[in-house]
Design a protein around this nucleic acid. Structure first.
Length: 217
DNA sequence: ATGTGGATGGTCT
DNA sequence: GACCATCCACATT
């Protein structure tokens, strides 16, 4: 418990990502840069955090896999059009909440789906939220489990990562080389025609928390 | 180790 | 009323 407290203190003192990072105009590049960073939620005194090890870019209105394809703008995806630095949360298959980081300037719908994190802090809380064991490597694997372990729900959509009270993303000491990152097509976007083949998914090579079957190479 | 089908509900046509 | 940016249990190899 004491160790956990010290660790939480460390995380809170790491440099928080801000405007310069979130409001860049190249969501694909930002997605790669997001790997290794640490996402933290602190809801009602329950602090949980993890290293981002897998993420996907959803880019502009001409991306057929995006909720904002062809300029679609509805109540559901409104936060995708917000200026970079807020969270976009939606429900998938009626039961899974998906955590996205919105990037770019207001009006241009770019977002990054966080597909997996490596748990760092608040493992006991994550275990309660997911109903899994602390030692279970699937506890934060896959986008549904990311939201569940972090305690994120649709009601949190639109919250800023830059106010740094309940949700924030911090820089990390981890330096990733090109060779540490694997690129692939996105998962579960078969309906997107040729855009389903775009190399917009990135993950840390060999990390055991990455979703899917092929996290080798 | 791999494959299947059911759960479950908001969103848009 | 069909479609999902999914997960899990359980079946069969």
């Amino acid at each position: 418990m004491f160790v956990n407290h010290v660790f939480n203190h460390l995380i809170c003192n790491l440099k928080k990502l801000s405007k310069v990072f979130f409001q860049g105009d190249d969501v694909v590049r930002i997605t790669k840069q997001l790997l290794g960073k640490i996402i933290t939620t602190n809801f009602e005194g329950k602090l949980t955090s993890g290293r981002i090890v897998e993420a996907e870019a959803y880019r502009h209105i001409d991306d057929e896999a995006s909720h904002a394809r062809r300029g679609t703008r509805t109540n559901r995806n409104e936060h995708m059009y917000a200026s970079g630095g807020v969270m976009y949360v939606y429900i998938c298959y009626g039961l899974h909440h998906m955590v996205n980081v919105v990037t770019n300037i207001y009006g241009i719908p770019d977002a990054i789906l966080i597909r997996a994190i490596e748990p760092l802090s608040g493992l006991d809380i994550m275990a309660i939220r997911t109903g899994k064991k602390i030692t279970d490597k699937t506890i934060t694997k896959g986008p549904g489990n990311v939201a569940k372990s972090l305690g994120v729900y649709k009601k949190h959509s639109g919250k800023s990562f830059m106010i740094a009270d309940e949700i924030f993303i911090t820089d990390s000491e981890l330096i990733l080389e090109e060779n540490d990152i694997v690129t692939s097509p996105r998962i579960g976007v078969d309906g997107a025609g040729k855009d389903a083949l775009l190399p917009y998914r990135f993950f840390i090579k060999g990390n055991k928390y990455v979703s899917g079957k092929t996290n080798f190479l």
